[in-house]
Design a protein around this nucleic acid. Structure first.
Lengths: 209, 209
DNA sequence: ATGTATTTTCAATAATTTCTGAAATCTTTG
DNA sequence: CAAAGATTTCAGAAATTATTGAAAATACAT
């Protein structure tokens, strides 16, 4: 009576699928945090957690979404650079596989968000700083604000500029940090983060030499 | 003819207001990035860029929003800890003032997002990891997945667990980093970030000794 | 206590975002 | 190059999220 397995293969397979589903749901909820749609996040979760190369139909069926939705989500994930195309020979369909290194995924996301959010913000902030300087010849001379007192006004402008500058400095720092993290040498920062974060010596990144 | 000012006070005041409006619009667009609503972000932008203590009516008028919306946005900003109440004596109204230190703002946001997003995610990931282990007595013995082959199955479960663990490790690191950054000693990290980010020696944080 | 000023809440509505499904397009094969 | 297979696009539908406005609650002064 030794060696009677406590789990049948069927039960184990079901448990695995449940765990996958749960992971997909949880990861889907993080969508907001990454600035993407829930479905897109779920597609990514599915590809990540199965680790395999799935085709559009696999994804449609497993997540119960339309073809259009699957197509658009996959395209977006490709744009973000965290999913790549794959092909099976003798098969006409396209397959998709997720990046499997969590740190690489994170780097891709940082890269994209800096590009989409920080860079434009910086550009705008520079413009805004200039606005309060070159205020000559505003065609509308009409009465506008509360304080026409020149002294107060000058102080207000000075403070305004200072605040815009403080923001600028902050986001410049953020951008530079992001670029360092993302750059080829960026894996250094990953190490730094790991070390900074604790005395935990363990290395789970996998066996690459 | 020396000293003829090139800008009238009126024009200057208008320019200031334009710059403020532009700042508010730009900051409003970042709302998505911080995980808050556009209006909430605009209210914060207004309070930050004017630097003053404004009451609900000031905000309603300037941003052209309803009283309810203003109230809810302010409450949320208070919860995030980046806006504080202020009072003017002899006045019954409540006034609000924004945190002015950009780094402190950022710390507050990190603190809140770790609490709201990373911590729950970690909890779920721990649960998910356990799911694939304790797969005994699943009442539904029905046919489920593709591979009933015990060998493949075992490998799939192992890989699954490994991927969940990789995620866990990553977010544990993230959480710890966040806590370090946020902690009282966290200003150290601010300095580190500034130093890491460039050879830029300038210190714009203001004149604190 | 009573009246007044102020803030909060929340159901209804408006705005925005996401998803679908079928037509259009592109790709491969015989 | 025609037919079949696969993918993309996009207008409209559905779902989600944000906003309003007026009633309810709260705080204050007399």
């Amino acid at each position: 009576m030794a060696r009677v397995p406590k789990t049948t293969p069927a039960a184990q397979a079901a448990a695995l699928r449940d765990a996958q589903d749960r992971f997909i749901a949880v990861w889907g909820q993080m969508a907001g945090a990454w600035g993407i749609s829930r479905t897109m996040s779920e597609v990514h979760a599915l590809l990540y957690i199965t680790g395999g190369a799935l085709c559009t139909d696999d994804i449609m069926e497993r997540l119960d979404i339309s073809r259009g939705n699957a197509s658009m989500s996959l395209r977006a994930l490709l744009d973000w650079g965290i999913v790549e195309r794959a092909h099976k020979r003798g098969d006409r369909k396209e397959y998709f596989r997720s990046e499997q290194d969590v740190w690489a995924m994170f780097r891709a996301i940082v890269r994209e968000r800096v590009k989409r959010e920080v860079d434009p913000l910086l550009a705008s902030l520079y413009e805004i700083r200039d606005m309060s300087v070159a205020s000559v010849e505003n065609p509308e001379g009409a009465a506008t604000v509360v304080a026409p007192d020149p002294e107060e006004l000058a102080a207000a402008v000075a403070n305004h500029t200072q605040r815009v500058d403080a923001m600028l400095d902050f986001f410049r720092t953020l951008e530079t940090l992001g670029q360092r993290f993302v750059s080829p040498a960026g894996r250094g920062l990953q190490l730094a983060a790991t070390l900074l974060s604790a005395g935990s010596t363990r290395d789970r990144t996998g066996g690459a030499p």
